[in-house]
Design a binder for these strands. Sequence first.
DNA 1: ATGGCTACGATCCGTAGA
Length: 254
Amino acid sequence: MKLATWNVNSLKVRLGQLTDWLAQGKPDAVCLQETKLEDGKFPVSELEAAGYHASFCGQKTYNGVAIVSRRPLTGISTGIPGFADEQRRVIAGTLDGVRIVCLYAPNGQAVGSEKYGYKLRWYSALKQWLSGELARHPRLAVLGDLNVAPEDRDVHDPKAWEGQVLVSEPERAAFRELLELGLKDSFRLFDQPEKSFSWWDYRMMGFRRNAGLRIDHILLSPELAASCSACTIDKAPRKLERPSDHTPVTAELR
DNA sequence: ATGGCTACGATCCGTAGA
């Protein structure tokens, strides 16, 4: 099974790139973030024409998540139970016995801001929920834009970013707490190129300078991690005209 | 130099992202 995550930064703008990418890589499921579409405007028929089903939970302008899959998911749920949130950031479903959780973590804006507090509260609720999900679903895959670069090697310029949002110690601690539940960062199960990132700022020629961060992640339960044969970042879509600022990450399960 | 893009929904700029 091939699972992927991609923050498309507007599915309306990136739909053609997505269908091309699906045709090339033929993933079994891809988790999307920042679809920025109300559910009534989700491109169901276009994805069906590409051979994919979709489960989605969106809103206008901001946020929005979806899981696009070769076959329909079962047991679809949205949001984090017990954490009331207007922002559409979480959708989950089951495919071939694998529980797939698609996440769009809050950005946090700036350390100490109101949005930063919301981010940490969101992570706290996420951890509580995923703790139970791991017990319920031994085959659990958590994919998404987690908006945290977990270690300095995930940051192009750790000195410049030190203490900033996406990198700050409380955010990294929140990320580590997910790993302490037993989830594995699938990217780090394998040797990887130095300076591997999944996001580059649109400004300052970020991509050309490889001035990026690794903030899009695929976390796997121990059982799935044991069957994971690869985890790769596909930089090709970031080179296209009008790219998303994020690029897809894919994990292969035996 | 604390900006520089991009998307969106509103105008002819503000909000948000990361």
